[in-house]
């Protein structure tokens, strides 16, 4: 059948539901094994973080769309958490294959990594459903990107870091959703990463310092 805008949206939702229908709201046995392999087990912090962010997300969602729609916020969050655990597992498998290690203690205890990954999963869910609701809401009820960054108090540059890996390991994302994440990437590169408190500036400073040290070393050798 011809691919109408409505058909495209329905396909994207169906695809998301198909991916997440059988997924769990809790970490899988495989993820638990990764957690147990860590020098410091991150499990309790991960569960608590998900719970805390869930409370904030549901509150902000209800504030934006009205208390009558609070249950929809809970459903969106539940889907986001399923996708978060699913992608985390795929990322760890991919990294295990690449690096031949099973201990990801530092990564799995990194708060920014988890917030970024959960934000990306939630953004996929929110973007999937956003086209089925009104597109002409006032700014106070606009839940499209970068709304999720404000909810999770996350820097755009940190969110940017997970996008490519997310697309790489979640092979069931629709073309529409990949395009959406790519648009988020572009917005971050073009403007959101360049705000005054962005971590990008620290990285540029570090990079310059390394370059200066290397130049000094080179001239000393000469």
């Amino acid at each position: 059948p011809p691919q109408t805008p409505v058909r495209t949206v329905m396909n994207t939702i169906q695809q998301l539901i198909m991916i997440l229908n059988t997924a769990s709201d809790q970490p899988s046995e495989t993820l638990i094994t990764y957690f147990n392999n860590c020098t410091v087990n991150p499990k309790e912090n991960i569960l608590k973080r998900v719970q805390d962010i869930g409370c904030i997300f549901k509150e902000k969602f209800a504030q934006a769309v009205g208390q009558g729609c609070a249950e929809i916020g809970s459903q969106r969050f539940r889907l986001g958490v399923r996708l978060y655990y699913r992608v985390m597992e795929s990322m760890l498998k991919s990294e295990e294959e690449r690096l031949a290690i099973q201990n990801f203690s530092k990564l799995l205890n990194d708060n920014t990594f988890h917030k970024s990954l959960l934000a990306c999963a939630l953004e996929v869910v929110m973007a999937t459903y956003s086209r089925t609701t009104s597109q002409h809401l006032d700014p106070g009820t606009d839940l499209s990107f970068p709304w999720i960054l404000n909810v999770l108090n996350l820097k755009a540059f940190d969110f940017y870091k997970v996008i490519e890996s997310f697309i790489k390991v979640e092979t069931n994302l629709t073309r529409e959703m990949i395009k959406h994440l790519e648009r988020c990437e572009h917005r971050i590169m073009e403007s959101l990463a360049w705000v005054s408190d962005s971590p990008l500036f620290d990285l540029i400073k570090q990079s310059k310092a390394r370059e200066a040290a290397a130049n000094l070393h080179e001239s000393t050798c000469t």
Partner: peptide, 21 residues
């Protein structure tokens, strides 16, 4: 027609991006 998503050329993984040596 939008171009396909361009993955980075370097073999970089999520661990590298969060500075975990």
């Amino acid at each position: 027609e939008v171009l396909e998503y361009q993955f980075g050329l370097e073999e970089e993984g999520i661990r590298d991006l969060f500075d975990c040596d």
